[in-house]
Simulated assay, not measured.
Amino acid sequence: MTLNGRDHRIDFFRGLALIFIFWDHIPHNPLAELTVRNFGFSDAAEIFVFLAGYAAVLAYGKIAQRDGFIIATVKILRRAWVLYVVHIFLLAVLMGIVFFANNHVETRDLVQEMGLQYFLSNPQQALTDELLLRFKPNLMDPLPLYIVLLLGLPLVLPMLLRKAEYVVAVSLIVYLTAPQWNFSAQEGGVWFFNPLAWQFLFILGGAAAMIGQRQTTQKTRPLSRQPLFISAIIYLLVTGLIAVSWRWPQVHDALMPMWLGEAIYPISKTNLSPVRLLHFLALAYVVAKSVPHTEWLNVWLARQICRMGRYSLEVFCLGVILAPLADMLNALGGDTTTIKLFSALMGVGVMAVFAAWLEWNKRLNTPGLKPVK
């Protein structure tokens, strides 16, 4: 099978996930009330990992088909090494920013908020743990997860391109046993994103890329007559009501049957609880079915978000740096609603400008491509 074409909706939703992740990591940010985590069991992390798998299989699958699996493996491992170096550099920059900001903010302890006390109390061990991907302060969890998932991609890529359903079946078995295992982290802890659980979502993203390439233009029944689509809509509505009710604990306790609460709680993010996974899959299915790949992606705002999605890892790293800076700006500005909205929107603007610069630089250094206007 040959991999062709590019679905720009993928870029759009990756960019949107980056915005949501940035907003969600600014404490007390009013715009974080608009992100997907407030209306269901999953959040932007699921979007990011699923689409990372989708994009990785498309990109490296194309290389494997053109140049062979050895070349694809070398490129994957080289990419993982680059991300490892970026992770170490990014953590050093993040610590520098947080320590600097903490000296200028009197209303709260940013070091405590970012989970950097371990470095202050045991700097030598923290540096060792950083090299082993065991020291992960707040905001730093997704990148080590992606590095591990990328390192495992060469093991499954050949079969994903031929029989994706077999890989999904094995991945499901690993996912079901994941709560019994996890990678170790600093001070006897474990990874916040258990790679053995989250690999299933990454693999599902890759399998979805394969299915998307196989689809042909056929007449289908209206969505209102498709049982799977209707079931997904109902699940999203029910879980959305539950998630909204969390804002009012008394209302939630009154409406939530005891047996249902015992069945779904706790909703683990570390081990990607089944109800979280099912919520995201329902959301992805509904969006894929109901959001057309049409001219709406040519609207100026959509183009900016798509561009951020095309450079998702670079923009994510910038967001990690901007989040504590936005928090510092909010604290220095008195934590008013105006300053919180300004810092959140300004951060997204900086991320968009950075993505535009990356694209301009790429076109400038690629023969035959015109610089972006």
Rank of each mutant, 00 (worst) to 15 (best):
M1W: 07
T2C: 01
L3C: 07
G5C: 05
D7A: 07
R9W: 02
I10R: 12
A17D: 06
I19G: 07
I21F: 01
D24S: 06
I26Y: 12
I26V: 15
E33I: 09
V36S: 11
S42H: 08
E46Y: 00
E46P: 01
V49L: 04
V57E: 05
A59D: 06
Y60P: 03
I63P: 05
I63Q: 10
R66F: 12
D67M: 01
D67S: 09
F69N: 12
F69I: 10
A72E: 11
A72W: 11
I76M: 09
I76T: 06
R78E: 12
I88W: 10
L94T: 04
E106L: 11
T107W: 00
R108D: 00
E113R: 04
L120V: 11
D129M: 01
L131V: 13
L133C: 04
R134P: 06
P137K: 09
L139S: 02
Y146N: 05
I147K: 09
L150M: 09
G152W: 01
G152H: 00
R162A: 06
E165I: 13
Y166L: 14
V167N: 14
A178G: 11
A178Y: 13
A178N: 12
N182T: 08
S184I: 15
A185C: 00
E187A: 01
V190L: 07
W191F: 15
W191K: 13
L204M: 15
L204S: 10
G206K: 08
M210C: 10
M210I: 08
T217L: 07
Q218G: 14
R221T: 13
P222M: 11
L223H: 01
R225Q: 10
Y235S: 01
V238W: 06
G240P: 07
W246P: 02
Q250S: 08
V251E: 02
D253R: 13
A254H: 08
A254Q: 03
M256Y: 11
M258D: 11
W259S: 14
S268C: 03
N271A: 12
L272R: 05
P274H: 11
L277R: 04
L277M: 10
L278N: 02
F280W: 03
A282K: 08
L283C: 11
P292H: 02
T294H: 14
T294S: 14
L297E: 06
N298G: 03
V299N: 15
W300K: 13
A302P: 03
A302Y: 05
Q304A: 10
Y311I: 01
L313S: 00
V315Q: 12
C317R: 00
C317L: 00
G319E: 03
V320K: 01
V320D: 01
L322A: 04
A326L: 04
A331G: 05
A331W: 02
G333C: 14
G334S: 08
D335Y: 04
D335K: 02
T337C: 03
F342M: 12
S343K: 13
M346D: 14
G347K: 07
G349T: 14
V350Q: 09
M351A: 11
V353H: 15
F354T: 08
A355L: 14
L358G: 07
R363L: 00
L364W: 03
T366D: 06
G368I: 09
K370V: 15
